[in-house]
């Protein structure tokens, strides 16, 4: 296992590996997103209360799920970077932050657009909405802190601490709707006793979540590749690769 781990942590090996993985993730993402979007917007029935308005769930829920998933991914990478002094892990964390910030913004924006007609308001300071906004600020704070420190190694360590401290917000976002009275309803998919929606509504939603995940995989690997190139610009393998072309 450790040889695999060490091999993965070697930048040239990772660079080649990710280059070959990106198209797979990309095409899977495209296939899942197109099919599920059609399923969600066309073949799924309208909701008994919200009519066609509920269909924004097919963007809102995957974006919100991914916003938490990417944060945990980023924080785990940062922790590996700190504990094992692995530069590649830091590069992964750096690459994840803007993607995480984007999907968090998407979750907040689609939630707001959904909230206006259904709840009657664009925004409410309830526990779920507020903690998700804090998540966006954590991503932005991480990116801001990095750009304020010139030295890459110091930026890696300082921003990793911020990412780790922010992990405490993840369970708060997830459980906010069960711990406190909130305007936002409880989880539909992770409800006790199975998802609270019929299969013809649920399947496109699961498809969208897989599609979003693959999209994240493709974009993250592309960004890590770029980050590795920048960090390793003075190394021999990068020079060899550039000159051989």
């Amino acid at each position: 296992m450790w040889t695999w781990f060490h091999k993965l942590s070697s930048p040239p090996h990772f660079y080649r590996l990710s280059a070959s993985l990106i198209p797979w993730f990309g095409w899977l993402a495209a296939a899942f997103l197109i099919v599920s979007l059609y399923g969600g917007l066309v073949t799924a029935p309208a909701d008994y209360q919200q009519g066609d308005g509920f269909r924004i769930i097919y963007v809102h829920v995957p974006a919100a799920m991914l916003s938490l998933f990417i944060y945990m991914f980023m924080a785990t990478a940062a922790a590996i970077g700190v504990i094992w002094r692995m530069k590649l892990a830091h590069a992964v964390a750096v690459a994840c932050a803007p993607i995480g910030a984007s999907v968090t913004f998407l979750a907040l924006a689609t939630g707001s657009i959904w909230g206006k007609p259904m709840w009657g308001t664009w925004w409410a300071w309830d526990a779920r909405l507020t903690s998700e906004l804090i998540l966006l600020f954590l991503y932005l704070g991480y990116m801001g802190l990095r750009s304020a420190i010139d030295d890459t190694n110091r930026a890696d360590r300082a921003s990793a601490i911020l990412a780790l401290v922010g992990v405490v917000n993840v369970p708060i976002v997830h459980y906010s709707v069960t711990w406190w009275n909130s305007l936002h309803q409880g989880s539909t998919l992770l409800k006790k006793g199975g998802p609270a929606l019929p299969p013809d509504m649920a399947l496109p939603l699961f498809g969208m979540i897989i599609g979003f995940m693959c999209f994240f995989g493709a974009v993250a690997l592309t960004r890590v590749k770029r980050e590795v190139l920048v960090r390793e610009q003075n190394s021999k393998w990068v020079k060899d690769m550039v000159t051989s072309k």
Binding site: D47, Q185, S187, L197, P198, D200, M201
Partner: peptide
């Protein structure tokens, strides 16, 4: 001064609700 609607986590087609 303000009235908001809260909906639950259940989604279903109108026929099922009926």
């Amino acid at each position: 001064e303000e009235v908001l609607a809260k909906h639950d986590e259940n989604y279903m087609p109108p026929e099922v609700a009926e």
